[in-house]
């Protein structure tokens, strides 16, 4: 235990959104028990000691739930392990002598702030355009007034598990945000509480998504990259709801 491994890192360095970037090479020596981000912390401490600029990257909770960390590691969003965010990746996944390439998440709408940190504010814009149920504080009925079938609640939860990290966009060859948007839409569309705004929500969020991101060609890379393993099924549901939203006679949507 506590074996140390030596690694060569190729890290993308970019001074600002409008600067051109480059790869820089660093050596790292780190315990197998360290996490990937702790390895970067260590590299940074070394850089600071040498009076060199540390690598800028973002992270927060470091337990795979806040969605702040990103990174393309050896060409895979959040690294090689399925169902994990970068912060959950541990160095024992790698071997002594490995060469690791570290890049930021890339898409036109994920402009690079510095080095490995990107802005994912476009995802918030999608959410703001309809990712809510309009229920003002205090106007909610009793929580058990509307029963929700367990299967529907579980399915909605599967969608709601999305942590908004943007790995789906990064991994997508088309820079499409379908998996994110579909997860956010279907979380609410699958619940009885989400029905009144179902059609307008779907239209607004999809239309906003398309202002920023590419189109889905059903590669499925997003699902593989997703740290919460969100299913592609939600994309199918979203597609169905979107065209339905165009066709539906909404004056009758109060009927069952």
């Amino acid at each position: 235990m506590n074996n140390e491994i030596n690694l060569t890192l190729e890290v993308w360095r970019q001074d600002g959104p409008n600067e051109s970037g480059r790869f820089e090479t660093y050596d790292a020596k780190v315990s197998e028990d360290a996490s990937f981000l702790e390895m970067l912390d260590l590299v940074n401490e070394g850089l600071i000691e040498d009076d060199r600029q540390p690598i800028t990257f973002e992270s927060d909770c470091r337990e795979g739930i806040c969605g702040t960390c990103s990174l393309m590691i050896n060409g895979e969003a959040h690294g090689p392990n399925k169902g994990q965010a970068t912060c959950q990746l541990h160095m024992r996944t790698f071997k002594n002598g490995d060469h690791i390439t570290v890049e930021p998440f890339r898409a036109t709408s994920f402009p690079i702030i510095k080095d490995l940190a990107v802005s994912r504010a476009a995802l918030d814009s999608i959410q703001q355009s309809g990712g809510y149920i309009s229920v003002g504080t205090g106007s909610a009925p009793d929580a058990n007034l509307v029963p929700v079938p367990k299967e529907a609640a579980e399915m909605a939860f599967d969608a709601a598990a999305c942590i908004g990290c943007g790995a789906c966009v990064a991994a997508c060859p088309n820079s499409a945000a379908q998996l994110f948007t579909a997860a956010k839409i279907q979380h609410l569309n699958l619940l009885p509480q989400g029905q009144p705004e179902r059609w307008s929500r779907t239209e607004n969020m999809v239309d906003t998504m398309e202002e920023f991101f590419g189109t889905c060609t059903n590669h499925g890379e997003c699902h593989e990259a997703c740290p919460k393993e969100i299913s592609l099924d939600f994309i199918a549901f979203m597609n169905r709801d979107y065209v339905k939203a165009k066709i539906k006679n909404r004056t009758l949507s109060g009927q069952r």
């Binding site: 009925p141 929580a143 029963p147 709601a160």
Partner: peptide, 22 residues
């Protein structure tokens, strides 16, 4: 108690029993 009502109405997918209740 109001918080539970509010969160449920917002679409928070709390765990449910088979009858659909929380």
């Amino acid at each position: 108690t109001n918080i539970i009502d509010q969160a449920t109405a917002q679409g928070v997918p709390f765990a449910r029993e088979y009858g659909g209740m929380l």
